[in-house]
Design a protein around this nucleic acid. Structure first.
Lengths: 232, 232
DNA sequence: ACTAGCCATCAAGATCGCGTCAAAATTCGT
DNA sequence: ACGAATTTTGACGCGATCTTGATGGCTAGT
């Protein structure tokens, strides 16, 4: 069943939306705070999120930004605020749609259907906040990494590097790609960074030099070996 | 460059949208009719379509429906009509977003960015570009080569050489072509390199001298035998 | 059979890229 | 402002890769 997470602090609106969704066979969960939303998305893996920007704790746009660090779940934003720059900001921070209150139930439902349509297109394999490659696990939401159930402590850059590789198991990512994704678009050729961080990662991941998880493709880039698809 | 198709019959609005998009380095095309839109999408393969529902010939929603029969291009609908059922209908017929006039340029641009973001997310998902020539497989993403399911370890230049040939199975690539693609534009005549690397590749690919995969065309260049089209 | 041109193979020296270490600079929390 | 953690930078050794030259085989034309 399709799971919808509704994030709002107005009981009346919550009740109305829940009723409309439940009547159409959606599996509805609700939370009233931004922190609760982040937790619920990480734990519940909803198929779509309806997010009111006016939350008591964290600003809704900040919720978007944080969730987008590790999840592509579609987010439909609700807001009483019709200000253009607010809309633009929310959409640029990862929201997939922006509906201004008051809105009709029919429209909200239609926009949820659009979001779900995208999702089914984008990620046929359900997106998990935890990437697993062999005995390596990368929890994007909690910024935590384990190897064979042993916790590994990584710095932010180390984590970004590893998470990027883990998103494409077995695939070679070029020096340029990694540098641009982890360090930023203006770093294209500082491949010395990669050597340093690859070395540190191997040490922290306790890589066996004979069978390393993090493999160098000389002159090209780096990749994580994926035991599921190839042995080396 | 990102291509945007704008479909509208009001010259003033077309001008405004075109100006805003052009200023942001988009490649803009415009048409004024529904039939023109369908043709332009089929021929021009835009990255996103901005579609006004009020067209002189076909209804915009009908344009959505017809385009969706063969294309997933994101469609952002514009309309002066704020009626709920009209919105719902458009969204359910394949529109990805619905903006009611009057709208701000900033918001339209933000919604176009959202549409493009979706599109970009689709692409990298599934495809692993694997070139297959007979029992030889060249996985460009993994920089891995197998012959009859046996892994082959290649150096960067060897890989580039083989990948180039595998891109044109059965076709002869001249010395000059290979040198320029693999070694760079300033290498045009160092064909001794080719002999060395062809030799190393044959050894690593375990080529039978009687039926080599990598064939020399004397005085011209090299080619990979493609069992699918010719026997040798 | 001889020669010229092109090709295959081998091996040695030169070069390049990588891994590693450690110090300097920067950032961040307190 | 201070100290700790992190990032950036430089230096160095090593091994793999690339380059280069030498040697010999094959084919076609004379």
């Amino acid at each position: 069943m399709t799971k919808v997470l509704v994030v709002d602090d107005e009981p009346a609106l919550l009740r109305a939306v829940r009723a409309a969704l439940t009547a159409r066979q959606y599996d509805v969960a609700t939370v009233g705070t931004g922190q609760g939303a982040i937790d619920a998305i990480a734990l519940g893996a909803p198929d779509v999120v309806v997010l009111d920007l006016g939350l008591p704790d964290i600003d809704g746009i900040e919720v978007c930004r944080r969730v987008r660090e590790w999840s592509d779940v579609p987010i439909v934003v609700l807001s009483a605020d019709g200000a253009e720059d607010r809309k633009v900001q929310a959409l640029d921070e990862g929201a997939d749609d922006y509906v201004t209150k008051p809105f009709s139930t029919a429209e909200l439902l239609a926009r949820i259907r659009v979001a779900l349509r995208h999702r089914n297109h984008d990620a046929p394999a359900g997106d998990d906040a935890v990437l697993a490659v062999g005995d390596l696990e990368v929890d994007l939401a909690r910024h935590a990494v384990t190897v064979a159930d042993r916790n590994v402590d990584l710095t932010p850059k180390e984590f970004a590097f590893l998470a990027l590789l883990a998103r494409w198991p077995g695939r070679v990512l070029t020096h340029r790609t990694i540098l641009q994704e982890v360090w930023g678009p203006e770093y294209g050729s500082e491949s010395q960074y990669l050597r340093v961080y690859a070395s540190q990662l191997r040490k922290k991941l306790d890589d066996d030099p004979a069978r390393p998880r993090l493999v160098t493709e000389p002159g090209v880039g780096y990749r994580l070996v994926d035991p599921a698809s190839d042995g080396g």
